[in-house]
Protein backbone atom coordinates (compact mmCIF):
# COMPACT_ATOMS: atom_id res chain seq x y z
CA UNK A 1 0.00 0.00 0.00
CA UNK A 2 1.47 3.30 -1.04
CA UNK A 3 1.14 6.65 0.66
CA UNK A 4 -0.97 7.86 -2.21
CA UNK A 5 -3.70 5.43 -1.14
CA UNK A 6 -4.40 7.47 1.98
CA UNK A 7 -7.43 9.72 1.86
CA UNK A 8 -6.24 13.22 0.90
CA UNK A 9 -7.75 14.96 3.94
CA UNK A 10 -6.53 12.50 6.56
CA UNK A 11 -5.24 14.52 9.50
CA UNK A 12 -1.57 13.91 10.23
CA UNK A 13 -1.86 14.97 13.83
CA UNK A 14 -4.62 15.48 16.34
CA UNK A 15 -2.91 18.56 17.74
CA UNK A 16 -5.44 21.32 18.33
CA UNK A 17 -8.51 19.11 18.10
CA UNK A 18 -11.12 20.30 20.60
CA UNK A 19 -11.43 17.02 22.49
CA UNK A 20 -8.90 14.81 24.23
CA UNK A 21 -9.73 11.32 25.44
CA UNK A 22 -7.43 8.86 27.19
CA UNK A 23 -7.77 5.60 29.12
CA UNK A 24 -4.88 5.04 31.48
CA UNK A 25 -3.72 2.96 34.41
CA UNK A 26 -3.96 4.79 37.73
CA UNK A 27 -0.26 5.18 38.43
CA UNK A 28 1.76 8.34 38.79
CA UNK A 29 3.96 7.72 35.76
CA UNK A 30 1.01 7.17 33.42
CA UNK A 31 -0.61 10.26 34.95
CA UNK A 32 2.47 12.37 34.21
CA UNK A 33 2.43 11.27 30.57
CA UNK A 34 -1.30 12.00 30.21
CA UNK A 35 -0.81 15.50 31.64
CA UNK A 36 1.95 16.25 29.17
CA UNK A 37 -0.23 14.95 26.33
CA UNK A 38 -3.14 17.17 27.40
CA UNK A 39 -0.76 20.12 27.36
CA UNK A 40 0.55 19.20 23.91
CA UNK A 41 -3.00 18.94 22.60
CA UNK A 42 -4.31 22.30 23.84
CA UNK A 43 -1.18 24.45 23.83
CA UNK A 44 -1.81 27.56 21.75
CA UNK A 45 -5.58 27.02 21.59
CA UNK A 46 -6.42 28.12 25.14
CA UNK A 47 -4.65 30.79 27.21
CA UNK A 48 -1.42 29.49 28.77
CA UNK A 49 -2.68 30.33 32.23
CA UNK A 50 -5.88 28.29 31.75
CA UNK A 51 -3.84 25.36 30.50
CA UNK A 52 -1.55 25.61 33.53
CA UNK A 53 -4.56 25.61 35.88
CA UNK A 54 -5.99 22.59 34.03
CA UNK A 55 -2.70 20.73 34.34
CA UNK A 56 -2.50 21.40 38.05
CA UNK A 57 -6.09 20.38 38.79
CA UNK A 58 -5.74 17.26 36.63
CA UNK A 59 -2.54 16.33 38.45
CA UNK A 60 -4.36 16.55 41.78
CA UNK A 61 -7.41 14.61 40.62
CA UNK A 62 -5.50 11.86 38.80
CA UNK A 63 -2.81 11.41 41.43
CA UNK A 64 -5.49 11.15 44.12
CA UNK A 65 -6.87 8.19 42.20
CA UNK A 66 -3.39 6.72 41.64
CA UNK A 67 -2.55 7.00 45.34
CA UNK A 68 -5.83 6.55 47.20
CA UNK A 69 -8.05 4.82 44.64
CA UNK A 70 -5.53 2.02 44.18
CA UNK A 71 -4.78 1.79 47.90
CA UNK A 72 -1.08 2.36 47.12
CA UNK A 73 -0.91 5.45 49.34
CA UNK A 74 1.46 8.37 48.96
CA UNK A 75 4.60 6.38 49.59
CA UNK A 76 4.24 2.93 48.07
CA UNK A 77 7.08 0.50 48.66
CA UNK A 78 9.34 0.33 45.63
CA UNK A 79 8.18 -2.39 43.27
CA UNK A 80 5.11 -3.22 45.35
CA UNK A 81 1.94 -3.88 43.39
CA UNK A 82 -1.00 -1.62 44.30
CA UNK A 83 -3.83 -3.21 46.23
CA UNK A 84 -6.22 -2.62 43.35
CA UNK A 85 -5.69 -2.07 39.65
CA UNK A 86 -7.71 1.02 38.77
CA UNK A 87 -8.39 2.38 35.30
CA UNK A 88 -8.99 6.07 34.63
CA UNK A 89 -10.94 7.51 31.72
CA UNK A 90 -10.10 11.12 31.05
CA UNK A 91 -11.87 13.55 28.72
CA UNK A 92 -11.02 17.22 28.20
CA UNK A 93 -13.09 19.34 25.83
CA UNK A 94 -12.31 22.88 24.75
CA UNK A 95 -15.29 25.25 24.61
CA UNK A 96 -15.88 28.98 24.57
CA UNK A 97 -15.63 29.37 28.33
CA UNK A 98 -12.57 27.21 28.91
CA UNK A 99 -11.97 23.49 29.27
CA UNK A 100 -14.62 21.00 30.38
CA UNK A 101 -13.11 17.96 32.06
CA UNK A 102 -14.49 14.59 33.05
CA UNK A 103 -12.57 11.93 34.94
CA UNK A 104 -13.95 8.52 35.79
CA UNK A 105 -12.32 5.66 37.71
CA UNK A 106 -13.31 2.22 38.94
CA UNK A 107 -11.76 2.64 42.38
CA UNK A 108 -13.77 2.75 45.61
CA UNK A 109 -16.26 5.59 46.16
CA UNK A 110 -14.78 9.04 46.71
CA UNK A 111 -14.98 9.84 50.44
CA UNK A 112 -17.82 12.29 51.20
CA UNK A 113 -16.94 15.90 51.87
CA UNK A 114 -14.03 16.26 49.45
CA UNK A 115 -15.95 18.68 47.23
CA UNK A 116 -17.22 20.89 50.04
CA UNK A 117 -15.46 23.95 51.36
CA UNK A 118 -14.60 23.39 55.02
CA UNK A 119 -16.45 25.51 57.60
CA UNK A 120 -13.23 27.03 58.77
CA UNK A 121 -9.64 26.69 57.63
CA UNK A 122 -6.88 25.59 59.98
CA UNK A 123 -4.02 28.05 60.37
CA UNK A 124 -1.35 27.83 57.68
CA UNK A 125 1.11 26.51 60.27
CA UNK A 126 -1.26 23.72 61.29
CA UNK A 127 -1.94 22.93 57.61
CA UNK A 128 1.82 22.73 57.05
CA UNK A 129 2.19 20.24 59.88
CA UNK A 130 -0.70 18.10 58.69
CA UNK A 131 0.46 18.43 55.09
CA UNK A 132 -2.74 16.86 53.85
CA UNK A 133 -5.78 17.93 51.92
CA UNK A 134 -3.93 20.42 49.74
CA UNK A 135 -5.01 18.63 46.60
CA UNK A 136 -8.70 19.28 47.22
CA UNK A 137 -8.01 22.88 48.25
CA UNK A 138 -6.42 23.41 44.84
CA UNK A 139 -9.17 21.51 42.98
CA UNK A 140 -12.00 23.44 44.68
CA UNK A 141 -10.29 26.77 44.16
CA UNK A 142 -9.46 26.46 40.47
CA UNK A 143 -12.57 24.69 39.17
CA UNK A 144 -16.11 25.80 38.44
CA UNK A 145 -19.20 23.54 38.33
CA UNK A 146 -17.38 20.79 40.22
CA UNK A 147 -19.54 17.75 40.79
CA UNK A 148 -19.22 14.06 41.51
CA UNK A 149 -21.49 11.07 41.24
CA UNK A 150 -21.17 7.34 41.40
CA UNK A 151 -22.37 5.38 38.40
CA UNK A 152 -22.29 1.58 38.60
CA UNK A 153 -18.76 0.87 39.79
CA UNK A 154 -17.20 4.16 38.75
CA UNK A 155 -16.61 7.58 40.27
CA UNK A 156 -17.45 10.35 37.83
CA UNK A 157 -15.93 13.75 38.54
CA UNK A 158 -16.71 16.68 36.24
CA UNK A 159 -15.56 20.29 36.31
CA UNK A 160 -14.79 23.33 34.23
CA UNK A 161 -11.60 25.32 34.10
CA UNK A 162 -12.51 28.89 33.09
CA UNK A 163 -10.45 30.69 30.45
CA UNK A 164 -9.59 33.49 32.83
CA UNK A 165 -8.68 33.15 36.46
CA UNK A 166 -11.54 35.25 37.79
CA UNK A 167 -13.89 34.47 34.95
CA UNK A 168 -17.06 32.63 35.64
CA UNK A 169 -18.26 30.94 32.58
CA UNK A 170 -18.85 31.21 28.99
CA UNK A 171 -18.11 34.02 26.63
CA UNK A 172 -21.59 35.05 25.36
CA UNK A 173 -22.08 34.19 21.72
CA UNK A 174 -18.65 32.64 21.50
CA UNK A 175 -17.84 29.21 20.29
CA UNK A 176 -14.79 27.04 20.62
CA UNK A 177 -13.28 28.16 17.34
CA UNK A 178 -13.66 31.88 17.87
CA UNK A 179 -12.39 31.40 21.42
CA UNK A 180 -9.34 29.69 20.02
CA UNK A 181 -8.78 32.39 17.43
CA UNK A 182 -8.58 35.22 19.90
CA UNK A 183 -5.71 33.60 21.77
CA UNK A 184 -3.41 33.50 18.80
Amino acid sequence: MSRAALPPNRPLSSRGEPMFHRILDADTTAVQQALMDVRARFEGTVPDDALARTELVMAEVLNNIAQHGTGAGKEPLPGAAPRRAVTIHLTVTRHAGGLACAVTDNGPPLPPGCLEEPEHLPSPELSALRAGGFGWVIIRDLTRSLFHYRELNRNVLCFNIPRSDDGDMPVPGGDADSAAADVA
Partner: peptide, 16 residues
Protein backbone atom coordinates in the same frame (compact mmCIF):
# COMPACT_ATOMS: atom_id res chain seq x y z
CA UNK B 1 7.94 30.28 38.62
CA UNK B 2 4.29 31.37 38.20
CA UNK B 3 2.85 27.86 38.37
CA UNK B 4 4.85 26.97 41.45
CA UNK B 5 4.00 30.27 43.11
CA UNK B 6 0.31 29.54 42.48
CA UNK B 7 0.48 26.31 44.52
CA UNK B 8 2.10 28.12 47.46
CA UNK B 9 -0.55 30.87 47.35
CA UNK B 10 -3.61 28.61 46.97
CA UNK B 11 -2.53 26.45 49.90
CA UNK B 12 -1.43 29.50 51.94
CA UNK B 13 1.99 27.94 52.32
CA UNK B 14 3.41 31.25 51.06
CA UNK B 15 2.67 32.41 54.62
CA UNK B 16 4.96 29.94 56.34
Amino acid sequence: TPNVDRVFRLTRMDMI
